[in-house]
Amino acid sequence: MRNDNKKSVIVGIFVLIGIIIFITGVLTLGGQQKKFVKSIQLTTVFDDVAGLQAGNNVWFSGVKIGTVRRINFFGDSQVEIVMNVEEKVREYIRKDSKATISSDGLIGNKIIVIYGGTTQAPPVENGDRLMSEMPLDTDKMMETLQENNKNLVTITENLKVLTSKIAQGEGIVGAVMTDSVLADNFKSILSNLEKASVNSNRMLVELNKFSSSLNKEGNLVHDLMNDKELYKNLQTSIQGLQATADNAKVLTENLNEVTYKLNDKSNALGMVLNDEEFASRLKHTLIYADSSTMNLNRGLEALEYTWPFRKGFKRMNKAKENN
């Protein structure tokens, strides 16, 4: 009888301990899942949830504030996330806040992270839908890294070939780096460039001196630039030269016109200068006139010895002698 009572007491103790453990576990899980906390529901929509499951946590500013209640398909190929969020943090989450999917640690479970929001927007209310932002796709990141690795391998191989050719003296760069004659020529070019630079600096100094000397008083250039009276005289002289040039131009035009007329047979001088037949006739006429004049002079001399005119010529000679 005692043994039966003892067994009953032991069984009762184990049952009691089991009940206590069960209740403690329920309370603990309920506390973690926010089952016994007053909450509101918020939703968001993603194109891809990347393995997110119901029961995963919701975080805000590094603090766990709720859990994912359920996941529903939405629209054509999107996914709607329904979240239970503690009602006491509602005032800190604004309607323009965003939700994204992240990981709890490096390889931990997927979580929902709520972030952002401005004070100008009102707090969220039960049933509000937050804007979503797709997280970085690790698969695409790995594909990109793989592609970059391939490109790096190709670049490394090309650099290996290039450096090998340079070391062997192939190409312009290889020739410059390995050909001593070409290196000497390059040094000579640099030396000549340095000399040219020195000469250029010297020329600039000489030009500065020359320009300074031009600005000294008594210099013609300085006087021309600063003496207003000299400038006026020079301007007057230039105007006079311009007038002379204009007159010379007019004279030249007149001479050209006279020359043109002299070359034209339509006038007397032009005919004399240009018409050979007329000139020949004029020459014969002058010859005849000269011959007639000689004959006339002979006739007049003969008249002096004729009887009717002899007395008249004697009187004329006496009058000349008296004068």
Rank of each mutant, 00 (worst) to 15 (best):
K35Q: 10
V63P: 05
V113E: 12
G117W: 00
S77V: 15
N56W: 03
K110L: 10
I23P: 11
P122R: 03
V68P: 03
N109T: 14
K35H: 10
R70G: 06
V89W: 10
G51D: 05
G105I: 01
I93N: 06
G55F: 12
I107P: 09
R70Y: 02
I111P: 04
V45I: 15
V68E: 03
G62Q: 06
F60W: 13
F46E: 01
G116P: 02
K64Q: 15
D47K: 06
S97P: 05
K98N: 11
L29S: 03
N57T: 06
G116V: 00
F36T: 10
F22G: 12
V124S: 02
E80L: 13
D47M: 05
S39A: 15
L52K: 04
L27W: 08
G108N: 01
N56E: 09
V49M: 07
F74Q: 14
E87S: 10
V113R: 10
V68A: 05
L52C: 07
E125G: 12
M131S: 14
L42P: 14
E91D: 15
A50E: 14
A121I: 04
N109R: 13
P123W: 07
L130D: 02
R90D: 01
A54Q: 09
E91K: 14
G117A: 07
Q53F: 05
K64G: 14
F46C: 00
G108S: 04
M131F: 09
